[in-house]
Design a protein around this nucleic acid. Structure first.
Lengths: 210, 210
DNA sequence: TCTTCCATAGGAAAAATTCCCGACTTTTAT
DNA sequence: ATAAAAGTCGGGAATTTTTCCTATGGAAGA
């Protein structure tokens, strides 16, 4: 049996080297390439063969997710293991939708990385516990703002998410500040987003702004 | 010659293992401890001897900076090498002021880590190029939060910028909510950032967060 | 030593938020 | 068609958060 050909994409050289050493302890695995940015990874993988790509989503070069999507479109047989700093539900589900074959958070044990690579090689879909939990949460996400909020509430929501103050919103909508304050309260209750920053993050990851 | 006793604090197990393997290639270096959080690191290092601590500032338990400061106060002979994801000017100058003996970014070459550890052992002050540049820049940016805010204020600032509520911050820092509220007011006045979302945006564009 | 800055926090006043409510309009279901 | 439900708008009172002022003790510096 020939070994698994693994490529590593992570912008931190030390981290890449760490992975490489870890993986090379495994006889059936060989690391055939390392990339420090998305473009290089895309170019090389389009032209050369690898079985598995370990991909850090928080990479420079604008859009680890976008690269993942393009890569899966170009080289469908390539298995991609996303290895990310954070296990935020939105991030996990975004990554899986973009075509990831597995998702591990960096807080996983070192052995988990090896196990995940072997699992992927065998056709599995390795997910860390955090990732599974995140996907679960993302699933019952039928509580989206568009659903629970009324038109006016949603309008106020997007403004709050942009960082506008209650008074400013009231001025723009030509209603009393009191009314906007009341909407704000309703929005917080219905969505569970308790401040403007949470709203901003929610809105951004769900592409509700602009 | 006895080897350098090195401890590693980083919340990502895989990353820790990577460093360890890297460092253990060096005959004069031995890794004597690993920590996944600040408290554990502080406790162990107060009671046991190590020459060098490699510290990732972006650790949970909030306040890698605070831990660094406490640690240097408690164990002044310990050399601390800060090894951070980002070389933002603010972060570098804060870290150095808090007592760091060296600063490397994770984008450094693997050899740089080894070199930095040896340099530290020999009494040097290893700084990555990015860090040097950052220290330079930190000087001329006199209006920046990092300049006008005290250590404690800056700490609260980063938490506010992450969307934490006043009460949560108070709980984490073990101080009265009143105190945090007062800091918040001071921060808003000094920086002109009037709400958490503005702080977030500022912090993001200046790469002050993890 | 004396001064200044920082961390901490209490009290009072001001501002923002929440909760409850009512009036009126539009949509929906029977 | 008519009743019920839901949405828009805001007032008033209670509550919470924020601001402003003050004070104490510690640490750093002149």
């Amino acid at each position: 049996m020939t070994g698994l050909r693994v490529a590593i994409a992570d912008d931190h050289a030390v981290v890449r080297t760490g992975y490489r050493r870890l993986l090379e302890l495994e006889p059936n695995v060989s690391v055939v390439a390392e990339f420090a940015d998305c473009e290089t990874a895309y170019t090389w993988l389009s032209a050369n063969h690898a079985d598995i790509l370990i991909l850090d989503l928080s990479m420079p070069g604008r859009g680890g997710l976008e690269t993942l999507r393009r890569l899966k479109a170009r080289v469908p047989t390539l298995k991609v293991l996303v290895f990310s700093m954070h296990g935020a539900p939105a991030m996990v589900s975004q990554a899986m939708q973009a075509g990831a074959d597995g998702y591990l958070t960096k807080s996983s044990a070192p052995e988990a990385l090896i196990a995940a690579v072997l699992d992927l090689g065998a056709g599995g879909q390795p997910l860390s516990e955090e990732a599974v939990r995140a996907l679960g949460e993302a699933g019952n996400d039928s509580q989206a703002p568009h659903q629970v909020l009324s038109l006016r509430e949603f309008q106020v929501f997007t403004m709050l998410a942009q960082g506008l103050a209650v008074d400013e919103i009231a001025a723009r909508l030509c209603v009393s500040a009191k009314t906007v304050a009341n909407y704000q309260t309703a929005i917080r209750q219905k969505t569970g987003l308790s401040n403007a920053l949470e709203m901003f993050r929610y809105a951004r990851t769900h592409a509700l702004l602009e």
